[in-house]
């Protein structure tokens, strides 16, 4: 089943999402990238109803880009998260809502802080030090309560993230096999091997 995690550390946000595209009980694809790069310092991991996820994430991506072109400045993480939340909140009371859950991670280049936002398909938004979506959250959140350190270096952060992935692999019946991990820090966004 779909699972995504994100943790903040000293000057970075780590975002991990599984790479399976499943339909019913069948894995259709095992190298799907479910982390969208919205701007040079902004990431978004998405999960939920297939189709809605692609449509909505591309809608967000293009609108963030449009804002950038019009105003020559990029939306910060909190502003972007608020805009995305509002889009989902309007959607949930529409005729056909998007069923998409998000983890928005970014690096605020003005205050030099990493920020992470948890957003669900209802439009619930909260700023958190670490978070997860999907069945993996039931295992990872309690683990992160114990091991998360906001002052951890990137190496330590990756080690903590690995513990989450291992725990999910060990205990979850329908655990995903592969994950894609991206990090955002002062230098921007990059993919990392785990």
């Amino acid at each position: 089943m779909e699972t995504s995690f994100a943790i903040t550390g000293k000057g970075y946000v780590l975002v991990a999402a599984d790479t399976t595209a499943a339909r019913s009980i069948v894995k259709m694809k095992t190298d799907e990238d479910k982390i969208k790069i919205l701007s040079p310092h902004l990431l978004m991991a998405y999960s939920g109803e297939p189709g809605d996820t692609i449509q909505f994430s591309e809608y967000v991506e293009r609108n963030i880009r449009l804002y950038q072109i019009r105003n020559t400045l990029t939306l910060g993480p909190s502003a972007a998260a608020s805009w995305i939340r509002r889009s989902l909140a309007d959607s949930i009371r529409s005729r056909r809502p998007y069923a998409v859950n998000l983890l928005v991670g970014g690096y605020d280049t003005s205050s030099h802080t990493p920020e992470l936002y948890w957003i669900d398909y209802l439009g619930t938004l909260t700023k958190i030090p670490f978070g997860a979506h999907g069945y993996g959250s039931y295992f990872a959140l309690s683990l992160l309560d114990r091991y998360h350190d906001p002052e951890a270096s990137l190496e330590e952060g990756i080690a903590t993230l690995k513990r989450c992935l291992d725990e999910v692999a060990k205990r979850l019946v329908v655990s995903p096999g592969k994950y894609l991990v991206k990090v955002v820090d002062k230098d921007g966004v990059r993919e990392i091997e785990i």
Partner: peptide
Amino acid sequence: GLGTDVHTLWE
């Protein structure tokens, strides 16, 4: 109440 409406209503 409902988390999404906390933000929507406050705005």
